[in-house]
Design a binder for these strands. Sequence first.
DNA 1: AGTCCTCTTCTTTTT
DNA 2: GAAGAGGACT
Length: 756
Amino acid sequence: MSRVDLQTLNAPQRAAVLHDSGPLLVLAGAGSGKTRVITYRIARVVSGGVDPARVMAVTFTNKAAGELRQRAAQLVGQGARTAWIGTFHAICARLLRQHGQAIGLPASFQIYDGADQRALVVQVMREISLPERLFVPAEVLGRIDRAKNEGIGPRDFRGGDFFGDVVAKVYPAYERRLQAANAVDFGGLLLRTLELLRQETTLAEALAERFVHLLVDEFQDTNHVQYELVRLLSGRHRNLCVVGDDDQSIYSWRGADIRNILDFERDHADAAVVTLEQNYRSTQTILDAASAIIARNSERRPKRLFTAAGPGAPIIYAPCEDERSEAAFVAHAIARLRQEEGLPYDQCAVFYRTHAQSRVLEEALRARRPAIPHVVVGGVRFYDRAEIKDVLAYLRLLANPTDDLALQRIINEPPRGIGSATLAKISEQARLDGSSALAAARACATGTGELSSGPRAKLAAFCTLIDELSAAAATLPPSALAELVLERSGYGARLASDPGPDGEARAENLLELIGSLRAYEAQSEAPSLPGFLEQAALAGDLDETPEEHGAVTLMTVHGAKGLEFAHVFIVGLERGVFPHARSLDDPQQLEEERRLAYVAVTRARQRLYLCHARRRWLFGQQQVNAPSEFLTDVPRRLLQTESAFSGHAAAVTPRGAFDRSGVRGAARGATRPAGARGGGDQAEERWVDSDEDFDQSAGASDELTTNFRIGMRVRHAKFGVGSIRMIGGTPPHLNLTIHFGEVGPRTIRSEFVLPL
DNA sequence: AGTCCTCTTCTTTTT
DNA sequence: GAAGAGGACT
């Protein structure tokens, strides 16, 4: 291993790299050189004589896979190219393309992304007349996805509860539709691969024989199906190296099961375990803060990060009046860093819990005198933009004529006079014939059905268009085909004739699409339309992180995993924002939020800024939130408060005052006629308005009053306004007063005193 | 059939 | 505050 210098590794890292054979668990704390261990290990295995083509390394994101591939190539040279390095989804797609026929999947199958899945669920629900008002399609889909992640196919799915029984009706129909469209969804890529390996045991054995070494990155994020896949593929040689950090498990909502890493030793009795605790990234101060946050979780392997670096600068705590001054603070601080320390912008990053928070920050960065260059990573995926999806739908239909979803998307896009009435006839025809929508459209256009001549001619014209394009698809490279689609469909012309402000942006996006098609053709060995569509479907929204662009990076905490920056700002540290409101009443979800906070904090190398806003405009409403517990968990000695900014922070909400206009349900509900449609029923909302700065709250006074609104549903009346008082003394008591709004002349009000 | 407007709903995180 | 659905109007 010529270029692998073991001397640069610390003892446990070296142990992990040199571990010979058998299962290996590497518990890698944040910033402990995890990627290095993986790449060095690959290099060592290869230099030890193993054919790189017999090494598989699996990651979760395309970004991580790309980095791994690149760094492996640096160490082993071009031979690394033949190694199987990719995301679970990409590797499964590859296996299914090669061998999927055995389970009835044509090699040209399509990959449906989240949007496609949702559309499909809506269709199925309409088909079996499930009211969307009652059953939210996204939740139905969520349940289906969860089942898939747990390895439960449509046949094995049992509802178990009221909602589950509804899902049990949708799931099989949904799966049938997928099959009919020759499509596989994200979960299906994994589940069907598992199905394939279980059914085709010869194939499974051959693959297990082939892959001498299997490495899995971010093992804490594996779900049950992924775990099984790994188990099967590594079953022959048992050289399974899993790397992960239970404290950084932040994808349980996607089916990740933290138990996979916590129980690895139980499942592999002879597993070697290496723990990497030395951190090479952050200052001790930052690590202390991170430890203080994560220490409150119960489900974790105890470990303690340490660093040889000194304590470094204190963490800046910035309480702000509202989200705008919070954003202004961030912009101000970055500008100052730039001015006083000459810090490059790309050394700074701002993390938030949800994408919705990025807007204010962008505005604030743009508003500064010399505007601060910035990049927002993630958000709307490129391939999710409407115009891109439209053109892709044409391409998909050409690649796969049974893709009904694609047909429906473009049959009247651009408008060509084919409306809902015609569409209904087509789907009726498709149902009668048991054919695809495109075939049914052809039948309607040529047959003597009850379609009147006008629509029929329009439909015929559309069919001719598709025929013409399919003929071209046989000979043209994908990029030329896309151009032809734009030209012949009239899509390009329509876009050109629409010079709206974002019309230009959309035209640009289409050019970029053509560009990415060309890039794909240049870089791929055997470019094909299905190949490109696969790449597009599997592309994530944060695949390329432009760190070299000299710009401040704005992203969600989820997007930040695996990255590091010299200066990190975490904004919106408020109860209800981060931790997210939906996690507040579930201890397990709260633990995940905590891990998320841990991930955020450990991204910082030198300086960390923790911000929160007292008031925030959210849901189009002014809200008042208490500081996040993740903030208050950080020991005071690590913090330096910076409230001098803009003077707003000094303003304290008068005790007991509560802006009536902020009371959404009470104000609106009162004016709404009784018995109006029940659609307005809201999910529960809660947040707390604290009068006290959290800095002073502990011990400073024995009485603390906060106002709050609580949401509850009592028939159609909702929401209360109230106050909560902590009464000192031993034992301490809570005084809870709730106004349930006015009913006629009466105020409904309740008061409780609760011992703690 | 298409367009425009209003009303409603919903907001986590993503391969 | 945005996007989607549904309704009314052209």
